[in-house]
Nucleic acid binder design. Structure first.
Length: 778
DNA sequence: AGTCCGACTTGGATACAACTAC
DNA sequence: GTAGTTGTATCCAAGTCGGACT
């Protein structure tokens, strides 16, 4: 059995350092990183003082040498064997063209279940092709020179001391935060284990109106509600509607076929939506224009409709300019004007921004009803450009408790319905017209209702940690199953676990862009290579490589080459036999089936738990590896960000590279150069200085050198980050307790890791992790 | 057993605010 | 001021998943 020695089983992300070779996973992981569509992520510090990483070379020191040949030989044999043992396996080409049953073509009478497999056994026996590679990455080196006079003690309050001045931004922020802290006083958890009991909320001297719902509900110290019950009482003010349309001034006109054409307000409003997007790539897309024009014509008067028949003859130029001017005007407003607007907004928040749940005041997340506009579907969405209609009170369902004050609809209107359903968490809902989906107004992530759920999510992931070994053993065993569906399930699960793929529900072809997840992968999305380099710059080739290339959620490309176990490789070949590129790779599997199976392995286990688990465990492992206790806060934060980045890479969280990036980097580069000059100058000065001057010169030199170093770190961080987005993983996948524990252990102020919003969201974690000495939570 | 759909999480883009540098 | 950056808040689309429905 491959069990323990298998990378998946034993190491997976636990000791795999992504992007640098190492460990059993080295080869795969490095492959993953470097080719993950994000370009390389090879970590390498130019200012060698932090850490150097060795690229994995052992990639395929694979035992396979013997295996390779054997395989060659066996391949044919096997192919035959397999294909006849499995030749009853006729792929079900159920290319679910949408929900519609469409495919009755199950012509193949394939009986999957009892699949004779007299073959295999033998060949499989020994396929332990996954040799652990030696771990070879260096430990982070203390950034020497830096005297890193960490403020042991009060770091959390005045952490900037150790940051020299090029840290202005941080400082400013700090200041702000400090202020904010003051006002919130006690509630700040940080290191005080004892939080003052509910502070005297009442007579708080609110320095500014900005004070929020200062009551802190420590729900994590309370009993849970019975399952299904989300609240006992719920009161709120309903949604805030978008402002009415303001018709354009007369001189701002639409032109058709070169001539001014006055539109009805309805048509004009929609024309305005388009005009405001004229610079956007969307308006160059055929589908967008087609959908827009069709919907636009629907809101035209019959006369307009008759006249305006060709989008190409439409000239939105003047409208476009007008809106641009308006936005300029807004930007150029005086302080007072801006302040006034701000206050108005705050007043709205005050009213609509909060709900009372079981007597506690909680922030509402999105109390503004989505304004009308043009639907911006992502990727090749078939409905892009369609008109999103204005939502009226008559479209909105209110959910609140019976005895609460029912929110008032705007004058002259009424709600679609008022209900009192405490099995759900939403306050308001309506149905959006483009896709016919429900939209909701819900509470802010800092609320109990969201927080509790979040907490549960991580608890489930932790439970998975305890079971992961045996679960991996199960699916590895299932690679050999006689049942094709079981094999498919096992291989899919392996991908999900190893690569953190999403489940991949079926999608309706004409309601959404063509994107896939694991279960919906098609043959065309993978390629198999018996031998190939995982990265172009690798020295060696790896064997049994699967190349993934598909569009995932939000049409973000996932590209990756990974080495897989022989058995997996062989299975994939089988799955692909006799299929066309457009056929499902896992034709006997869907997310429902997979999740059903997972539930039998562990209560609460679903596909997405693997993503959470692997993300969190990766962060924890990486933190342990990368953090050097001797580093200063700044350097530690770099390590933290790198750990975070590994997770983002794993989860394929990308962002488009801002066009300003190159320039920003150049600027930084120039700054670094300048600084270097200063340093050199200071050095010279120092050499010539004597007496008191010498001391001074030394100081100056040290300071400059420090700044210089800081700049370089900065550059590295920025560059590595250019197309990787850390936010999503931090917000959704990383157990915040890991970060909190890390901060405590390494004397890093929590504010460095979580900004204000994040601290609110993760208050439970910050508080819980306080009194435990567990260094790492996961 | 398959489909549909409601509810809720996850995700990148964009708007905006806060600062700095010039 | 103004332009340029950067971090944060907001927005809303696009996933996941369970349960009702057929």
């Amino acid at each position: 059995m491959a069990e323990v020695s298998s990378p998946v089983l034993s190491n997976h992300h636990h000791n795999g350092e992504y992007g640098n070779g190492d460990s059993a996973y080295g080869s795969q992981d490095s492959g993953m990183n470097s080719s993950n569509g994000n370009g390389k992520v090879t970590e390498e510090f130019s200012n060698g003082d932090v850490k150097k990483e060795v690229k994995d070379e052992a990639v395929n020191s694979d035992d396979d040498v013997p295996w390779g040949q054997l395989m060659e030989r066996e391949k044919k044999k096997k192919q035959n064997a397999e294909s006849d043992s499995e030749d009853e396996y006729k792929p079900e080409k159920k290319r679910k063209s949408k929900s519609k049953k469409a495919d009755s073509d199950s012509e193949d009478d394939y009986k999957p279940e009892p699949m004779e497999e007299e073959e295999g056994k033998g060949d499989y026996e020994d396929d332990d092709d996954d040799v652990p590679l030696s771990v070879k990455y260096g430990t982070p080196e203390p950034s020497s020179a830096k005297k890193s006079k960490k403020k042991k003690k009060k770091v959390s309050e005045s952490d900037d001391e150790d940051d020299s001045d090029d840290d202005m931004i941080e400082k400013k922020k700090k200041k702000k935060e400090k202020k904010e802290k003051e006002s919130k006083s006690k509630s700040t958890p940080s290191s005080k284990p004892k939080k003052e009991v509910k502070q005297e909320t009442s007579p708080v001297k609110r320095k500014k109106k900005e004070e929020e719902p200062e009551e802190i509900w420590e729900w994590w110290k309370e009993e849970k509600k019975p399952a299904g019950v989300k609240w006992n009482s719920l009161a709120h003010k309903g949604p805030l509607f978008a402002p009415d349309y303001e018709p354009l001034p007369d001189h701002v006109h639409f032109k058709y076929d070169g001539k001014v054409y006055k539109l009805s307000p309805e048509a004009e409003e929609v024309a305005g939506f388009y005009a405001r997007m004229i610079d956007h790539e969307y308006t160059t897309k055929e589908a967008f224009n087609k959908n827009f024009f069709k919907d636009w014509r629907k809101v035209m008067t019959s006369k307009e409709r008759e006249h305006i028949t060709d989008l190409k003859k439409c000239d939105f130029g003047v409208i476009d300019v007008y809106y641009k001017e308006q936005s300029e005007i807004r930007k150029a407003m005086t302080k007072d004007q801006k302040l006034k607007i701000k206050e108005e907004r705050e007043a709205e928040v005050k009213i609509f921004g909060f709900a009372f749940i079981d007597g506690h005041k909680q922030k509402v997340a999105n109390f503004r009803i989505e304004p009308p506009g043009l639907f911006r579907g992502r990727g090749g969405h078939p409905k892009m450009g369609m008109l999103k209609k204005r939502i009226q009170p008559e479209d909105v369902i209110i959910n609140c408790s019976k005895d609460s004050a029912i929110p008032e609809p705007p004058k002259g209107h009424k709600w679609k319905e008022v209900r009192h359903d405490n099995a759900v968490t939403w306050l308001c809902s309506w149905t959006e017209n483009v896709l016919g989906q429900n939209k909701y107004i819900m509470l802010n992530p800092s609320s109990k209702i969201k927080g509790e759920k979040d907490y549960e999510k991580y608890e489930t992931a932790r439970r998975l940690k305890k079971r992961i070994d045996s679960i991996r053993a199960v699916y590895q065993e299932d690679w050999k199953s006689k049942e094709m569906r079981v094999r498919q399930r096992a291989v899919a699960l392996y991908f999900i676990d190893k690569l953190a793929l999403r489940a991949g529900n079926e999608k309706d072809v004409d309601e959404a862009a063509d994107t896939v997840g694991c279960c919906s992968l098609r043959v065309e999305h993978i390629k198999l290579y018996d031998k190939i380099k995982l990265n172009d710059d690798d020295k060696h080739e790896a064997e049994n490589v699967v190349e993934f290339d598909f569009l995932g959620k939000d049409s973000i490309r996932y590209f990756n080459r990974v080495h897989v176990e022989k058995r997996v490789y062989k299975n994939l070949k089988i799955f692909m036999e006799n299929k066309s590129p457009g056929d499902d790779l896992f034709d006997r599997l869907d997310t429902a089936t997979l999740n059903e199976h997972l539930r039998t392995l562990m209560p609460g286990l679903t596909v997405k738990v693997f993503r959470t688990y692997n993300a969190s465990i990766t962060l924890q492992d990486q933190l342990m590896k990368l953090t050097n206790p001797k580093d200063n806060v700044h350097q530690k934060m770099l390590s933290y960000n790198r750990a975070n980045r590994q997770v983002a890479i794993l989860c394929n969280h990308q962002r488009s590279v801002p066009k300003t990036h190159e320039k920003a980097m150049e600027n930084l580069e120039a700054k670094i150069k300048d600084k270097k000059k200063e340093v050199d100058a200071a050095k010279k000065e120092l050499e010539h200085a004597r007496g008191a001057a010498k001391e001074k010169a030394q100081k100056k030199y040290d300071r400059l050198k420090d700044q210089y170093k800081r700049l370089k770190i900065n550059r590295t961080d920025k560059d590595e980050n250019k197309q990787i987005a850390l936010g999503t993983s931090k917000l959704n996948y990383l157990d915040p307790r890991i970060s909190v524990a890390w901060c405590k252990k390494h004397d890093v102020p929590i504010e460095k890791v979580f900004n204000k919003t994040q601290r609110e969201k993760f208050r439970w974690a910050i508080d819980m992790t306080n009194n435990s000495d567990e260094e790492y939570i996961f």
